[in-house]
Simulated assay, not measured.
Amino acid sequence: MEMNSFFKKLESEHFLPLYTVTSMEYLAKAENILKNNNLSFIEITYRSELASKAIKQLSESDELIVGAGTVRSLDTAKEAVENGAKFIVTPGFSDEIVTYCIEKNIPILPGTVTPSEIMRAQSYGLKVVKFFPANVYGGLDAVKSLSGPFSDIKFVPTGGVNKTNYQEFIENPNILAIGGSFILSEKAIIKDEGFSAEQSLAELVAPYAD
Rank of each mutant, 00 (worst) to 15 (best):
T112I: 12
Y46G: 00
V129C: 12
E63A: 05
F41P: 04
L18I: 15
V98C: 12
K154W: 13
L146Q: 08
F7S: 12
E117I: 11
D75G: 07
N135E: 15
K9F: 06
I106W: 01
L74I: 08
L34Y: 03
A134K: 07
D75L: 12
R47N: 13
F93M: 11
G125I: 09
K9H: 14
S185E: 02
H14S: 08
Y100D: 01
P107Q: 02
F132K: 05
V205Y: 05
G67S: 14
F195G: 04
F15A: 06
F41Q: 01
G138W: 04
F7L: 09
D210N: 15
P115T: 00
A134Q: 09
P110D: 06
E11V: 00
T90S: 12
M119I: 06
P107G: 07
C101E: 05
C101P: 12
A142V: 04
L204D: 05
G139Y: 12
H14K: 15
D192I: 03
E198W: 11
T114W: 09
A28V: 01
K56N: 13
K154I: 07
I189W: 09
N32S: 14
N162W: 00
D75Q: 15
T114K: 01
D152F: 02
Q199W: 13
L140Q: 07
S185M: 00
S147N: 10
S151V: 01
L201I: 11
V71R: 14
E2S: 07
T76H: 04
I65W: 06
I183D: 00
D192G: 01
G179W: 04
K130D: 12
F155Q: 00
L176H: 06
L109S: 11
F182P: 01
V143F: 10
I118S: 05
G139S: 09
L34D: 02
G92R: 12
E203F: 00
E2N: 15
I178L: 02
Q122P: 00
Y19A: 04
M3P: 14
V136S: 08
E198F: 09
P149E: 03
T90I: 03
